[in-house]
């Protein structure tokens, strides 16, 4: 087998002295930067930078933000603690303890419902698995910050009151 006739790789190309000191390339790069600077000074309205946090990015309707738990009409959680979400969750970050509901029509409800937002990968599989449409990621909230790890572990009360009607 012979490799002759194959095009030579760029590494094999001989660099000239002018190229090898990179001086012209640096000047050319600076030229691009300065070009943008000058352009932006005269066209501020076209600048892609956002003045966050005063200005916020609008995401698509399908954006998966922080979870919320839906309520029944009487304000109790819609969730029946079936654990479908906890089962499907690839990050294993949902923890539910079920208990007997005093109303035998409902029978089962989540006594605790905890999500570890730091482990969550916002895949949305939980809302897809839920047979009761009880968990949604439609709040649009993406600013998830706290100053200690345990504050990222949110409970039922938090999730139930996260945002009444979603963001959209």
């Amino acid at each position: 087998m012979s490799f002759e006739g194959l095009p030579k790789g760029s590494c094999a190309k001989k660099t000239s002295f002018r190229d090898s000191i990179y001086f012209w390339e640096i000047v050319r790069g600076l030229g691009v930067t300065i070009g943008h600077l000058v352009y932006n000074i005269f066209h501020t309205s076209e600048m892609p930078t956002l003045q966050y946090p005063e200005e916020k990015k609008i995401y698509s309707d399908r954006f998966r933000g922080r979870h919320r738990l839906m309520k029944r009409e009487d304000g109790s959680p819609r969730c029946v603690a079936c654990q479908m979400c906890a089962t499907v969750c690839p990050a294993d970050c949902i923890n539910i303890d079920a208990a007997e509901h005093p109303d035998s029509e409902i029978e089962k409800f989540p006594e605790t419902f905890v999500i570890d937002l730091l482990r969550c990968v916002y895949c949305g599989l939980c809302e897809e698995a839920c047979p009761c449409d009880a968990i949604r990621l439609d709040t649009g909230i993406y600013e998830i910050a706290a100053d200690s790890r345990d504050k990222f572990v949110v409970d039922k009360e938090f999730l139930l009151n996260d945002r009444e009607h979603g963001s959209y």
Binding site: V80, C82, M84, K108, C132
Partner: peptide, 9 residues
């Protein structure tokens, strides 16, 4: 078909 709250599921 209340599998979500049924222990047999």
């Amino acid at each position: 078909v209340d599998c979500p709250i049924c222990d047999q599921a």
